[in-house]
Nucleic acid binder design. Sequence first.
DNA 1: CGTTACCTTGATATCGTTCAAGTACCGTGG
DNA 2: CCACGGTACTTGAACGATATCAAGGTAACG
Lengths: 258, 258
Amino acid sequence: MAGEERFFQKLNAFLEPSPKELAFLTQLLKRQRQCAANETLLVQGESHPASFVLLDGWAVRHKALASGRRQILNVILPGDFIGLEAHVIAQAPASATTLTACTLAEFRPAATIRMLAEQPRLAAAVLWATAREEAFLGERLLSLGRRPAIDRVGNFFVEIYHRLRLVGLADGGTFVAPLNLDHIADALGLSMVHVSRTFGRLRHAKLLLRRGQSISILDLPALEKRTEFDGLYLGRRIPVGERYLRAPFSADDLKDPF
Amino acid sequence: MAGEERFFQKLNAFLEPSPKELAFLTQLLKRQRQCAANETLLVQGESHPASFVLLDGWAVRHKALASGRRQILNVILPGDFIGLEAHVIAQAPASATTLTACTLAEFRPAATIRMLAEQPRLAAAVLWATAREEAFLGERLLSLGRRPAIDRVGNFFVEIYHRLRLVGLADGGTFVAPLNLDHIADALGLSMVHVSRTFGRLRHAKLLLRRGQSISILDLPALEKRTEFDGLYLGRRIPVGERYLRAPFSADDLKDPF
DNA sequence: CGTTACCTTGATATCGTTCAAGTACCGTGG
DNA sequence: CCACGGTACTTGAACGATATCAAGGTAACG
């Protein structure tokens, strides 16, 4: 139950569902399933039979090379979709694996098709979620290409902090991140050893502290400034209580939209 | 005209438009505009008033840091959307700039809203295009994080080659890429100097040859294998003449989709 | 024919990797 | 209660891939 709230909480930053939409989404979340840590949900290149909403727990999407080297593309947090592209792409472009025990809602690609056909505002919401994810990837790409290790690590955890806060899982700068150094290294294109040293430097600079799985952002403004964190894509600019999309689509928009 | 063909050629890998859909898309492409090389279409963080279809020419999406360092997120080729997320996101997550003189079709965000409301199969096509782009970003992320310079460059041009081929702009392994070393460096997270040396090594290995803006892939199979290129997301697995989506949505899919 | 954009090459510097050894902690079985 | 082994992390030393700095080359263009 708590997991579903997370999903709606995130969605709510974009749109307030109508009763009909709510009913549809409730159906979408009906088939729930628990799974353990380190379970494989999707394998890169293999068929892509289902999509998920992550309701509780952490997961990652990742790609591997034949050499065994691995890149984590993004972290999946409660409220996020996993493999939403199933209905338009036959093979999964990346693998997905749980990091912790998770609660997942599973639905067939046909559900997405039906949503497109019958729930245009939810289709817009899906596009929003997708655009958000693409913005994460773009920001990460900037990190890997052009930021030094210390900024990569800093920016990464600032992003996660804000994402967790949006779904009520972090506040006051401290949160639990079930990532070990290997995960962080694979997410940031670094070696585990160097990530370890980098945490040392962040601690020394009184910016960020990691103790086990507990991350404390010691100086959020300084860290955001240093790493040029731009939370634009997080919807932070939308005033509380307002949403980007209003119900229903306005007649003006539809008259001569081109 | 030729430019529009490119758009339909790409779309056709996913779906064959019905007459009604064709009419809608024709409307979408109606407001065309020429623009010069090095023109700015979108600025990261600023408002996002329009979306485009690139009909002719090359462009890039990129993000910059205060230090002046820059990351090119992806290359935009004829047939691709630019800033399709305008209707769901207020600020552009990245800048977009033309590399050559371009022909663009421009449309307002409301057109996307209308498409979602009235053309569900086109909405699916948009999701497909978006998923494809996300797959590009994921592959690039893998490159920047875990591939050595020579594989980054190789994989990059193999991807571009296949994308150009899909819209009829490359064949036989040779094509024109209006990218200078700085662009390539910024796309791959390398320095210009190192990219230059890397082309030397690729030439020496008889894999790839760059002469001015002309790129010749000398040994495509070898390069694909070496760089572990997986064209899954390019739709190559879809048999010619077949498409992923059939018209219309099947009744079976809609009956009990969850 | 000088200027500019683009590229190449060499020398040196640096950030991050790899290898290797060691520590801390935790759960398990004796 | 302790020995044991495993996982996760840390630290040092050497190495390597790529960056930076600097100089020079070529071709296009006014």
